[in-house]
Design a protein around this nucleic acid. Sequence first.
DNA 1: TTGTAAGCGTTATCAC
DNA 2: GTGATAACGCTTACAA
Lengths: 345, 345
Amino acid sequence: MPTVKDVASRAHVSPGTVSNVLTGKRPVAPATRERVLQVIEELGYHPNILARSLINRRSDTIAVVASGLEYFGPSQAVTGIEREADRHGYSVILELIPWLDRGQTNRALAMLAGRQVDGIIWAVPEISDNRDWLNDEDFDRLPPIVFMSMAPRPGIYAVAAGNRHGAWLATQHLIERGRTRIGHITGPADWWEAQERRAGWEEALAEAGLPCEESQVFVGDWYASSGEIGLNELLRRHRDLDAVFAGNDQMALGVLRAAHLAGRRVPQDLAVAGFDNLHESAYFWPPLTTVNQDLKAVGGEAVRRLNSLIEARLAGEPAPALEVNSHRPEVRARGGVVGLARPRA
Amino acid sequence: MPTVKDVASRAHVSPGTVSNVLTGKRPVAPATRERVLQVIEELGYHPNILARSLINRRSDTIAVVASGLEYFGPSQAVTGIEREADRHGYSVILELIPWLDRGQTNRALAMLAGRQVDGIIWAVPEISDNRDWLNDEDFDRLPPIVFMSMAPRPGIYAVAAGNRHGAWLATQHLIERGRTRIGHITGPADWWEAQERRAGWEEALAEAGLPCEESQVFVGDWYASSGEIGLNELLRRHRDLDAVFAGNDQMALGVLRAAHLAGRRVPQDLAVAGFDNLHESAYFWPPLTTVNQDLKAVGGEAVRRLNSLIEARLAGEPAPALEVNSHRPEVRARGGVVGLARPRA
DNA sequence: TTGTAAGCGTTATCAC
DNA sequence: GTGATAACGCTTACAA
């Protein structure tokens, strides 16, 4: 692999001049410049960015630590992150770790610090106590971090979609269509996002003065199978159930299946709403009403925040203030609910 | 950020000794070793991997260049790649580019070469002429590359799932169940994978002596909507159509919808098979028979190949011989086809 | 405008 | 077993 020296000697200039041509930080005579550029072309020279980073004390690299990339949410978020990172001139290191593994957390952090990433986006969802490490971590020794999908905490930069609000919207949507006995199938109880969605469902019911008891809730595991089991269980408990809000579209799909098998017509006998707006959900049978979160946009927002943290730290300024995140979910109303005209979005 | 020097002076040793403790390449006295380790702990020191790479001429980083990470296939593949890369001690740089953009291709390649990645996995599907750049690229100037989802070519390392075989299996499955008028909804005609799947469908029909004409084919775009349109069109052309093989599960989902709306019972009147085995497909209504490709495994295989190429180049050995890739798809038979017992897998 | 030299944080080579 | 010293490939004062 050719180096600056190779280029320099072949172009009869000094390495410094080659550098100046490349970075454009100092003026170079047009003639020399041309000559250098030509040699670069001839040699197929690419400046070694690692060496450059060593001097600049900046790697132009950010890391995204995520889990479950094979599923919808994370794949959307990472896509949005990569796109925005690219726009800001960052390369992205992708680090996939298990949802709950303290050892991996520390190893990943150490590795990324060693790789001199300029910042980190922590896109592992908050589950159980997998955020405890925040308490005994010294953030001054780490690059700036922006978190996704976690409960807000003082001193921590977090970006999230409006889980609670989205769930509220979906439930509200069911209520507006005259449903009064509305069940909920949640994600795993130790997931923050599942808790938020449940809270949104509860709030909407409370505001409408509708019943909201533990018996209306079935705790699922995000998978379709738990939606199927869940609906059967809820129907056993409440024969008059007329609607279900599922914590995600996969579980809603399981609900649809259980409803078909139980001979309940959707939406006439049972209205169903999901959460996520999977690509496929508009083609479920019947099409599923669901909540759209623009996770790509949330990922992009995380990158912009991270970038401002990075710039601030480099400039020696204090970190910019936390702002409330403004990503609003929206209901994608489809045939799944009676009397529905067209999408609100 | 502390450096080796800081650690060295505080532990009253030389930088070289600290390095020896860290790399373990030369013996260090237990006492000194202990002392150094303690200082490292105290200071929260992480060796600068960029500086290390500069000397080692090895970054322990591979890049994956992909497209459409928000969709099922790429997200599976990248997940498998990251996992296996991790196992081999590589970090992964994720570079997302549009499917068809020559400029982006060159920019990505130049950038990755500059970042000194040890190897590249090119996971952008082959579409139209988006592989033409291979002809005028000088591979000696680039890190080793392993390609996914592309037609085999001499001198190129490629790994792919068995698209053709999978399509053959699915069609065969329909034939075995007595279907004789089998249509096909393809992906976009300029996608290599769509061509392969179509070829598999054709082969199975030919072997069975069944009709296989242009009129049985509808060219879709991978999305569910094109499956719906496609079935309507195929039914218009062939009133006796008794089965459809869709090029992916999303289009199969559209087919299901069209069948419902047209009053054709699935599978009694119309058998449907898809391709991909989406998480959700077992819960479609009715459950979809589809082809399972283990794309995570294919991704893992790509990493192992790449690793052997990297090792070989570093050792100055010739690149290891190409082997035929052995990833076999399998049919996931579900209720979508008449008379089916249970999954073959 | 250009060349020279120092230094970024490591590791490898060579003495001791 | 340990300590100086010289690289790795680049950028940037400082001179010229």
